[in-house]
Structures are given as structure tokens and as C-alpha cells.
Amino acid sequence: MPSVLPESWLKVTERGLYCEPGDFYVDPHRPVGRAVVTHGHADHARPGNRAVLATPETLAIMRRRYGAEAGGTLEPLRYGERREIGGVRLSFLPAGHVLGSAQAVLEWQGCRIIVSGDYKRRTDPTCAGFEVMACDVYVTEATFGLPVFRHPPDEGEIAMLLTAQWQFPERAVLVGAYSLGKAQRVIALLRQAGYDRPLYIHGALQGLCDLYSELGVELGELRPATGAGKAELAGEIVLAPPSALNDRWSRRLPDPLTAMASGWMRVRARAKQRGAELPLILSDHADWDELVQTLEDVAAPEVWVTHGNEEALVHYAGAKGIRARALALIGRGEEEQEAATAEEAAP
């Protein structure tokens, strides 16, 4: 048992998770004095904080998205480096979610709490892989916290995408992918599969694709889809944010075959709701098996579940003898819509 009670120094508040002795918030959803940000998605990284502490990649993403609004002072902390804030020792571990994503490791008076942010366990060519560290309390996401969510291997999903591209040479295959992380991962997976034709992208994806390239993630030749004619786009793969799939924007494409890359595509009703003709189960979140594996790996006697289907994971952990509770955090899990809207608002 740690010497102090974890909930005595890391608390749920209206603004988010608050570390009292360090006087900072982790992923606050309203502006605060000092924010520790796990990754660049809009439901975790919000603009307008006075001081932001995050990995250099996350800070670069926030600068690209928010410009001067990214924060008053931006303080980089690399994976594995340590910072003392009011007696609390802070470090970042790779979370494997998107470029720069980190688990925040907080230590105070012999008690270690890890806040996962969002994470996944499988290999992703666009970011550093998840690292395991033992702890007293693990604060985990549970976006896909039901045992029906088990993401199949990426290669199979990419193979389906390539089959469709080959099978319908007169149509454009339009892939809906969130602009931060998912789009770049789909591109990198296609390149890994040996696809070397140019890929066409919606304007809203340009900024972050450029940033990924600047930060050393190889994406191959990307062309703007917006200026290209219908004939040029026949038989090609086009990427766009999900909100553009059924929008007027997509009318410029030749008879588009709509694909959607998301973990939600595992459930048919969700995929149909999205109007996907080719659902691709590609997620940047841990699936059920990865969540369960992670609880086992970190071997924490206590688990806090932040967002998603908390109750099922709490139930499971309880059955395994782990003390588990759901944290009611406001403003989480809206990443998909919000990330997309934030991008499109930009010119």
C-alpha cells in the first residue's frame, strides 16, 4: 500500500483531473493555470491554458492547430525525462495512440499514479509504441470497453481497402479518417503494404500531414484532392475527415466508394449510421483485449476508468480482484467529432 491515499492528491474537479500538491491539471477541458497534456486530440488538448507541459510533438501539434492560442508558455518534456512540480515528480511514457501521445506518470510521497490519456497496444508506424510501467493506480480510458470491440489485424483492413481500389477502377475510394493520427496512420499502413501511388487528401488534412512529415514520419507523395478532376481521381484513394464524407465536398469525386476508418466500424449499426460502404476497423484506442492486457501488465491494485464504457471494465476489474471505479470526467470521448470540426474550421 502506498503511504498516501491516491485520491487525496489527484482529484476529479469540474475542470478535469487535478493534482493538488503540483497545482496542475491533466488534460483539463477548460483553461487553467498549468496543464499537463497527454496528446494533441481536441478533447485532451484545449487552447488557452497559461502554461502547457507536453511532449515536443504534442506541443508542435497544438501550435499547428491553435497557433497563438496553444498556451501562454509551452514547456516540452521528452519521454523518460523528469520534472519536479511542487514535490510531484512527473514524466511521460509513450502511449502508442498518436504522434507524441504520452501516459503521464505522477509520483508523490511513494505513490505512483499513471494517467493513460488515450492509448493502444498494437504497433503503429507513425508513433512510439506503448510502454508498460508498474504503478499503484492506473487511470485508464475505456473508449472500447465492451468485449464486442476486438479490432482485427491492421493488415487485413488495409488489404480490404486495396481490394476495393483494384475492384472498382472507375470509382474513387474515399477514406474517412480523423485528421490527427488516423489519417497519417492509414497512409503509413498503405505505404507499408507497398502501395506507392500518390494519395489524394482533403485540405483539412494537409497541415497535420505536413507536420508529421517534418517530424520524420514518411508519408510518400500526397496530392490535394480539391483541385484534381474526376478523371484523375478514378481508381485512386482519397482521404478526408469523416464529416466531409457525405458532404457536398465529396461530389467532386467519381462515384465515391466510401470507406471509414474507425474502431466503431466493428459494430454494423454504427457503420451503417455512418453510411460507410467499406467500414475499416482501424482504431487508435485499445480494444477490449488490449485494455484487459494492460490491467494485467501494469499490475495496479487500483484502477480508475475515465471515459467510454466504464461500467463493463469496472465490472471486469472487480471480478479480477482489482479495486476499480469510474471517474465521471466531463467532455471526453467527443474527440472524433471535435477533432474533425476543429480542422475544418481552419481554412
Binding site: 465492451l146 468485449p147 464486442v148 449499426a269 464504457n309 463493463a312 465490472h315 471486469y316
Partner: peptide, 13 residues
């Protein structure tokens, strides 16, 4: 499968 988890899953799917 744990019947509780199955029940919640069925409700969802």
C-alpha cells in the same frame, strides 16, 4: 462469456 458483459454487449449491438 460473463453473462453481465454479454448482456451489456447485446444491449449495445
Amino acid at each position: 462469456v460473463d453473462p453481465v458483459l454479454f448482456g451489456w454487449s447485446y444491449d449495445y449491438v
